[in-house]
Design a protein around this nucleic acid. Structure first.
Lengths: 220, 220
DNA sequence: GTCTATAAACAGATAGAC
DNA sequence: GTCTATCTGTTTATAGAC
């Protein structure tokens, strides 16, 4: 009888990854001790060495988990595996839809706040973790957004201008999560729930449309 | 004869703060040991306890140092102590100028890359350090930008819409620093120097103008 | 004030019992 | 596979010499 349910090998692995994601996201890699991670996962310290070879192996496993999670959210939103939109208007709608989906995921996502915190911690400094996340998520999503941008504005997808512009569009959204504490204080919000996320998404989309409009006007 | 020059009390304090800023920025608070900080500052471990009461005291001192540094850059750029601009066009120029100054400071600033890294590390989680930086820098600068926004677009400075919009304008710029490694890879740049910073600043300013334009059109 | 020696706690890795 | 005991190194804080 194969026991692939709650207990067993995979359950321990997953529990360790989720606990590590949470604690590394909250306290940083050095601040999250293997003992606390094991405790949170209700596993023993030795299991980290057994399953991942050590603390660094667990970190890499977290990165791969993040790639899968983000792919499952950003992939469909950006239409990674769908056909290209046929018109400029359609491409614009797809861009706006992506931005709104990402805002909601970022600022009010109950699914994976730990995933986000982990990424924000690990994204700054180069290393194996960044390599995994860049190749698995950042590059494919960014490239796709550049294609959509080309269809929406007529600017070449791989031009320097387009690539930078897409970074700024992502940035305005990501910062809402990074600066979360500042946003909450300045907006005088108790926290950021679905209602607040909707307001943030509305402004972000409006900005995207404004920039598209200005670029369309530049070379009509 | 008062010796306020290179050696003495203040020199040790400053050296410790700069070293802590650098190492905490690079490895996080937990990842930066007091030993390495003291070594980098060419001071002894005991001096941290003597001058700052302990590692936490040094962290707070870093935050205060950051506030002073950022004020000296962002303050003049945003015109914190100057009179309000007289026209919408003037306010728009001031906003664009601020964005360009901040981009240059962020992505190519040779003065204080350590300051930036420290802020990005500490900004996520609430605590005494965030309190110091929010009250000292974030709030005053954000409020000033909201005022400029009102003058440039006619939208009320303290409306929810304006406050959020200003966050998105800051965000597109700040992300260029946070996602630095991703930007470098995707742009295929060896690093981000003055030339690259100019390109980034140009796009960011163009975005700001586009959003202003769209808001002006909304309520003419 | 500056520096050194040391204490007490904690880190990650590992060997071996079950 | 899971868990415990232990090893080795490192952490912050501190007491005391100079």
């Amino acid at each position: 009888m194969n026991d692939t349910r709650e207990t067993g090998r995979d359950a321990t692995r997953t529990a360790l990854i989720l606990a590590a994601l949470d604690l590394i996201g909250r306290h940083g890699f050095d601040g999250a001790s293997t003992r606390r991670i094991a405790d949170a996962a209700k596993a023993n310290i030795g299991s980290i060495a057994y399953h991942f070879g050590g603390k660094d192996g667990l970190r890499a496993a977290c990165a791969r988990f993040v790639v899968e999670t983000v792919k499952s959210v950003a992939g469909p939103a950006v239409g990674l595996s769908e056909a290209k939109p046929q018109s400029a208007a359609e491409a614009e709608e797809r861009l706006v839809h992506t931005v709104e989906t990402v805002v909601r995921f970022l600022v009010a996502g109950s699914v994976a706040p730990r995933v986000i915190q982990f990424v924000l911690r690990e994204i700054s400094h180069p290393g194996p973790v960044l390599d995994i996340m860049y190749a698995g998520v950042f590059e494919p999503v960014h490239k796709r957004l550049c294609q959509l941008w080309e269809q929406a504005t007529g600017e070449p997808a791989e031009s320097e201008e387009t690539r930078i512009t897409v970074f700024t569009l992502i940035g305005q959204v990501v910062y809402l999560r990074i600066g979360r504490e500042a946003v909450i204080r300045r907006m005088d919000w108790p926290s950021v729930g679905p209602e607040e996320a909707a307001k943030l998404a509305a402004i972000a989309s409006s900005n995207v449309r404004a920039v598209i409009r200005s670029r369309q006007g530049a070379k009509p």
